[in-house]
Design a protein around this nucleic acid. Structure first.
Lengths: 356, 356
DNA sequence: CTGTTAGCGCTTTCAT
DNA sequence: ATGAAAGCGCTAACAG
């Protein structure tokens, strides 16, 4: 059975070719030690002649750095995570790093196994998005030396002292509420993604939404708050529940864009034009949000800043420093588009309890 | 400066704890050599006590396998590639492999650099999608020992002898043509993605489309064939060109779904209902295709089979076998949805040349 | 400045 | 069945 690997030249081969020792070759490559101009050119010629390339595996063994980072997400097919992955990969490639993608499919068992496998691989750091990863597992593996940066975990969901980068979800919810209030909406519905893993990022969003509403004396009865599974179809199903109610809301806030898109579909299916008869606000501002009709109003998470903050936390650890016990909070922003509009007066005929 | 790494136990530590040599520990872990029941349990106890985990880096250095695979794509944010990545990651994880994602952003320089960096890392194999990777670079790096599986490169675009897995793009185009012909359409437009890298996968699609049309005596004049940049906005712009023509087509075939979605948007913007006034067929069958309104008729690429074929090619090489010089051709299928309909008779007033 | 030496943590003959 | 020893390809002291 013929093997596929044409043996690659090693430092020793180059050294022999150049008539020096492998240590000298190593020195000219790393540049950390001065080597005479004459021998340097000889070595460089040998490197070129043999087409030598350093072996990163051997290098990792002694340097204890693999130049490997991992991104753990529920599914890379989620457009938001794909955007983050793209941005992240581009940024770390500048530092000669590679990015490993791990999908947990929202299964804690998967997340645990991924974390453990990454740990054995001695990756230099893992960025963990919520969904399918238990905080306890993160804690266990980071205690063993793996550098983990939880990202977008609502703060209460993790160990109090655990660093990481978050978005200020509550502020985002408040932004959506303020926007809708400003358009005159008073009868509001909410669709919140329920997460089996106990991650409460979505709960924070509705909390912020509700709190901002309360400040204006507007309340949301339990019947106007339903849960969805985070998918477009889930959002549609949830919206059908909301829209079939006798006194249906004039506006709906969904805690992610996919569900908000489902809301729009459900509304159109029932002959309710958006935004004329129903305003819809999403969360995440996925690229698709501006490509559907009507274009979706959404709360945007600044991805570039997110990645910058992640790297700000991660890069120092790669020099051997301990992970800063910092928690970065990134403020979202609202992107108004065509799925929200001023409420129609006619919709208010039953809203006798309006307090202004 | 305190370091972040709590020194992990090694084979030697376990050996000391168990009162054996590290070779014996290695044997109980690998299971390749018989070790007495008594010592085995002692070793296992030591492993558990110390929480030992094998170091994959050291293992790779001697085994010459990194358990690392790479997927090179233009952008992971492309939904089709994200789907492939998800499927691929899941399948290789079963074999204890990890997946590295590389984005070329359609820049050949990026692709080359990615390939070279991966080569230095001794990954076990790279799956390369078209866009931003030159065939010559693939050739160069695979000559150096990197196992590369080109995927979805139209066959002419690569070295004749280069193995890989392809979709039968021409057959897909023919499928679209047959579908439209069956619905009575005779005045057809095409939007083809033009690729700076010389990849002709999209050209194959329109070729197949045109050939099938020709068999029924239908031709497409040059004015009804325009190029797009592969994005939704690009598709929209291209469609505007097509729809502003005096004798506009009754159906449009776009070589990818994103552009097809742009076509629908352009049509609706001009007050042309889809499919009543215009039928639209896409290519790729991205998940979104069934979520927009009208749901998009599309040519589907069977992702699972694609991944299966990739692994079929790749896995044997991981055992040291040479990459099979095989080229797998996967047939697509047509998924009819709501963006195509029987042509209205009124649209045919000028189509005197119909030959039936 | 360059060579010598010693590992990094593991697998793999080869003795015993 | 276990131990001893060599070596994967590289970096990092330390000599000379």
């Amino acid at each position: 059975m013929e093997t596929n690997a044409p043996k690659r030249p090693t430092l020793a081969d180059v050294a022999r070719e150049a008539g020096v020792t492998h240590a000298t070759v190593s020195n000219v490559i790393s540049g950390r030690v001065h080597v005479a101009e004459a021998t340097r050119t000889r070595v460089e010629a040998a490197i070129a002649a043999l087409g030598y390339e350093p072996n990163l595996v051997a290098r990792s063994l002694v340097s204890r750095r693999t130049m490997l980072l991992a991104l753990i997400v529920p599914r890379i097919t989620n457009p938001f995570y794909a955007e983050v992955a793209l941005e992240l990969e581009g940024r770390v490639a500048e530092h000669e790093y590679h990015l490993v993608i791990c999908n947990t499919r929202n299964e804690p068992a998967e997340g645990r196994s991924q974390l453990q496998r990454l740990s054995r691989r001695w990756i230099d750091g893992a960025i963990v998005m919520p969904g399918g990863v238990d905080a306890a597992d993160v804690d266990a593996v980071s205690r063993r030396g793996l550098v983990v940066v939880p990202c977008l975990w609502a703060e209460e969901a993790r160990q109090p002292a655990m660093p990481g980068v978050d978005l200020d979800f509550a502020a985002g919810g408040a932004l959506a509420a303020t926007h809708l209030l400003g358009l005159g909406h008073r009868r509001l519905g909410m669709i919140v993604e329920s997460r089996p893993d106990g991650c409460i990022a979505h709960v924070r969003r509705v909390d912020g939404f509700r709190a901002a509403l309360a400040q204006s004396g507007v309340e949301i009865p339990p019947t106007r708050e339903v849960t969805g599974d985070g998918t477009l179809d889930g959002g549609r199903a949830a919206a059908e529940l909301l829209l079939r109610q006798p006194n249906r809301p004039t506006a709906i806030f969904a805690t992610n864009d996919l569900m908000a898109l489902g809301v729009i579909e459900a509304a159109l299916d029932q002959g309710l034009p958006v935004p004329a008869a129903l305003s819809v606000v999403g969360f995440d501002d996925i690229p698709l949000a501006r490509h559907v009709r009507p274009r979706l109003t959404s709360v945007a998470m600044p991805r570039a800043e997110l990645v910058t903050s992640i790297l700000h936390l991660l890069l120092p650890t790669l020099g051997g420093q301990r992970l800063a016990r910092e928690r970065v909070l990134i403020p979202p922003s609202l992107v108004p588009r065509d799925s929200t509009a001023r409420v129609k007066n006619g919709s208010h005929r039953k809203a006798v309890d309006m307090s202004g």
